[in-house]
Design a protein around this nucleic acid. Structure first.
Length: 255
DNA sequence: ATGGTCGGCAACCGA
């Protein structure tokens, strides 16, 4: 079973990127963040013939999450189970006996912003969401754009970036409080050395200089993580077609 | 070099 995640930064701008990636890699499940499309404008026609079922929740201009699956999708829900629900940042569904939780975590803007407070609160509420709705003994995959680089291996300039909203003690703790509910970082289980990035800032020629960040994760509960056979970052669509600022990240499980 | 470039969508906000 292969599952993947991709921050599209507009699904409509990257339909060809997504369709080609599905065609080439044939994952069982693909989760997408920052679709930036309202539900009535979701490009269903483009995905009708690709052999995937889909579920999505968007809003005007910002955010938006989607889920594509070769197998049937059931028990789809949107948003957190506490207020504000923030529907277009989280989609949960059952595929087979696996619960998939696809999140687009708030970025936070700046450390002194109320949006940063909201980000930290969002992680707290997500922990509560997992506690109330699932058990770490069950097969649960939590994946997406987490807007956190967890340690010095995950950013190109750990000293210079310390204090950034995606690289500071507060978000490390907030992320750990969620993951300690019962998740393992399956990429790190497979690969301990650093400089494996999933995001490069558009603005500073960051890709050419490999000034990247690891912001996208596939987190799995123990019963699933134990069966992960590989986890890889596919930079190719970042280089070609219509590049996003994020890569595809994929994991394979022997189920 | 505290800039830069994208995308949505129509003047800026978000990343």
């Amino acid at each position: 079973m292969i599952i993947a995640t991709f921050n599209a930064n507009s699904l409509r701008m990257r339909i060809e990127t997504v369709l080609q990636w599905l065609e080439k890699n044939k994952p069982d499940i693909l989760c997408v963040q920052e679709t930036k499309v309202q539900d009535e404008d979701f490009p269903t026609d483009a995905f009708e013939a690709c052999g995937y079922e889909y579920a999505f929740k968007g809003q005007k201009k910002y955010n938006g999450v989607a889920l594509f699956s070769r197998d049937a999708i059931s028990e789809v829900s949107f948003g957190l189970d506490s207020k504000p629900q923030d529907e277009a940042r989280i989609i949960t569904a059952m595929i087979g006996d696996i619960t998939v939780v696809n999140t687009y975590i708030p970025q936070g803007v700046s450390p002194d912003s109320d949006k940063f407070t909201y980000k930290l609160e969002w992680f707290k509420r997500l922990r509560g969401y997992f506690e109330r709705n699932f058990s770490p003994d069950e097969p649960v995959i939590w994946l997406g754009d987490m807007n956190v680089a967890l340690d010095e291996r995950d950013v190109h300039n750990p000293e210079g970036l310390l204090g950034h909203v995606c690289y500071c003690p507060e978000v490390w703790q907030a992320f750990k409080d969620v993951s300690q509910w019962g998740f393992e970082d399956v990429f790190r289980n497979q690969c301990q050395e650093g400089a494996h990035y999933t995001f490069w800032d558009y603005r500073a020629g960051a890709l050419q200089k490999n000034r990247g960040w690891r912001l996208d994760y596939i987190m799995a509960t123990k019963p699933l993580a134990a069966r992960c056979t590989r986890c890889w970052i596919d930079k190719q669509p970042r280089m070609t077609i219509k590049p996003s600022d994020h890569t595809f990240l994929a994991a394979e499980f022997d189920l």
